[in-house]
């Protein structure tokens, strides 16, 4: 059973500028290939990608995890195995460390990359809720330069992102903020090697009695979404009588889950509210 990717055109990039040149080539449409854990599954269906694959897995500029001026910088080609074990990530981006340990299983984690997970833009993307909850930004590069995109503005529609032709995600930046409550839960089809049925990640701070929080969710909309309506409602009503159950109701109305192969809209809606309640109970306990 030879994999159909044997016919795929692939070229290795030796540096970031080499990769960007290849991706900018209008005559030869190309797409980045790194960990391969999504692309090779897609290739298995037998249809050869007409675009050339540019292997970016060895580009030094896409690797590295460090703290600089209050920002945690993670190279887009860093694997989830690295993220789950890295001291800086565990300390400053606990939701990201947590979701990293729940991506697939070990062999997937060793190859799947943060940039690839975001760029693949599945509504079930494992890292997206955590990145949204942490207020992450994506540094995106092309032959024209670099720009920053807040992660929740990156996902435009089902598998459509804000990446322009020739652009590549190079770094993921997360602001370092102390003293918050962080909570994440991925509900999959089983306890490992599971695609998300519904996931929620949230970060929250009490500020002079008002709740400031960021809520990211997967698999409840065509895109990984930031639940702004729920956040806004909480900013006003957190602390009132029955606020937690009411917030769950607001969330359930804000999301748009569907029935699919993995689960039902009703189930996703119910669980989404339950996950929010769990986060809010922890916020309440920390007040």
């Amino acid at each position: 059973m030879t994999g159909p990717s044997a016919r795929q055109a692939v070229v290795s990039a030796t540096s970031l500028s080499h990769a960007l040149d290849l991706l900018a080539d209008a005559q030869r449409p190309a797409r980045p290939f790194c960990g391969g854990t999504d692309l090779l599954v897609q290739a298995a269906s037998g249809v050869v990608d007409p675009r050339r694959w540019v292997d970016i897995s060895r580009i030094p500029e896409l690797h590295g995890i460090g703290c600089d001026k209050g920002m945690l910088r993670i190279g887009a080609a860093e694997s989830f195995a690295r993220l789950r074990e890295n001291a800086l990530v565990k300390q400053h981006a606990p939701l990201l460390a947590d979701c990293a340990s729940q991506v697939g299983a070990r062999a997937i984690q060793e190859r799947a990359t943060l940039g690839g997970n975001v760029g693949n833009a599945s509504p079930a993307a494992d890292s997206a809720p955590a990145l949204i909850a942490h207020g992450a930004q994506l540094e995106v590069a092309s032959t024209d330069g670099t720009r920053l995109v807040p992660v929740e503005e990156f996902f435009l529609d089902y598998r459509r992102t804000a990446l322009r032709a020739g652009e590549l995600i190079t770094v993921v930046l997360l602001p370092v903020r102390e003293g918050g409550i962080f909570w994440h839960r991925k509900v999959g089809t089983r306890r490992a090697q599971a695609i998300t049925k519904v996931a929620l990640a949230a970060s929250g701070w009490w500020q002079r009695g008002a709740l400031a929080c960021r809520i990211g969710m997967a698999s409840v909309a065509p895109i990984p979404m930031r639940c702004r309506a729920t956040e806004a409602w909480l900013a006003v009503h957190a602390g009132e009588t029955g606020w937690m159950h009411a917030a769950a109701g607001v969330l359930r109305a804000e999301i748009t889950p569907i029935d699919d192969l993995r689960s039902t809209a009703d189930y996703r809606r119910e669980v989404a509210g339950n996950l929010l309640l769990a986060f809010l109970r922890r916020m309440e306990a920390a007040r």
Binding site: R190, R191, I195
Partner: peptide
């Protein structure tokens, strides 16, 4: 069978 892949037909892993 529409869920004819190992990612969509769910058998127990060691954690299950």
């Amino acid at each position: 069978m529409s869920n004819n892949r190992l990612s969509t037909y769910i058998v127990p892993t060691s954690l299950d």
